[in-house]
Amino acid sequence: MLAKESRPRVAVYGLGGTIAMTSDGSGGVVPALSAAQLVAAVPGLAETGVDIEVEDFRRLPGASLGLSDLTDLAVEIDKRLASGTVDGVVVTQGTDTIEETSYLLDLFHTAPQPVVLTGAMRNPTLAGADGPANLLAAVQTAAHPSARDLGVLVVLADEIHAAGRVRKTHATSVTTFRSPNGGPLGYVVEGTPRLLNHPTERTTLDLSNLGSGPRVALVTVALGDDGLLLDGLAERVDGAVIAAFGVGHVPKNLVPALEDLANRVPVVLASRTGAGAGLATTYGFPGSEQDLLGRGLIQAGFLDPYKARVLLWALLATGHERAAVSETFASASGHSPPDPSHPSEKMRKPTCAVTN
């Protein structure tokens, strides 16, 4: 007689967000629904054959989540997956910060089981609320064997995105999430994840090395920028990301301040455009990408400024020094490693892993 096949098990962690909001009587909505209430409100979930466990981890708007909330969650998920009691994890949260929170969780996620983030653009009091459909698709993805070994995924509007690529691109549209560099990994079709491509590589860090949180600034360069936000910045931060024009350009008057900053703390040069890679050798004028990289700034490559800040924060929080930071960014962004002979490079063997 054949043994009865076990049902897949998925743990749902609730963090709050629009998906969990209801009216508080003042004319606005606030996070109020528990993870159990969210799961109970999903039509068709009981028919999927997936056993659901729920955990109320936080009940906050997405904008109020902090880095410590996410590292605490990473620890809890790591323990849950290591116990072997679930086949996957779903996290519900506000969409404001999913593009950042998913990447932070991805950096610390080394288990084969999928971790899927989802949320909603329309709260449950509105016609056409998308939360139940998104949660259903996220559970179906997290429970499916094809989603294993892909790291952290983001599933909304029946699209499956890699955490390292996904961006929120519209303030209100239910199809706000896009992956400009590479497109979605696949789609949920009739309740089954259909994967059309896979991430080429992922950068992962050792969660056990996590120390006190560094302070990492994100400075966006604008037309006619006089560098006010750079004044005294080195004394106040442990690292910085510069969201520069185009392929990595800044006004020439900012060059001295950026060089001084890069001599004191790791400074990552990213493009503020939101898609495409920064360049390295095409332009040579003062304030160009070639000029800035030659002065010790670190190339973000395909990583947008928000994800570059998350990676820099995570590297510094796990004890990486400048050379290891540069080397990891080179791997994570698809560029060649930096020149170790550059005076700003203090060599240290990196403790992160890039997995194919």
Rank of each mutant, 00 (worst) to 15 (best):
P124Q: 10
G186N: 03
A111Q: 14
N197F: 00
T281H: 14
R7G: 06
T200A: 14
G14I: 06
A129G: 11
A32Y: 05
A332F: 14
M121L: 14
A280D: 14
D56C: 12
D304Q: 12
L292H: 05
T204N: 07
G28C: 11
L261S: 04
Q290M: 15
A353H: 08
L292I: 02
K349F: 09
R167E: 01
T176F: 03
Q113V: 10
T71S: 11
V267M: 04
T282Q: 12
G17Y: 02
R122G: 12
T118P: 14
K349V: 09
P112R: 08
H170E: 02
T220N: 10
G182L: 07
L126W: 13
E159Y: 06
A46W: 11
R309E: 15
G287Y: 11
A157I: 00
V310P: 08
T95H: 06
A36W: 04
S208L: 06
V75R: 02
K168M: 01
P343V: 01
R272C: 14
E55S: 09
V12A: 15
L223R: 06
M121S: 11
V30Q: 11
D69R: 10
Q37T: 15
S83G: 14
V174F: 01
T203I: 02
K349S: 09
N123M: 07
L228A: 12
K346E: 02
A74L: 07
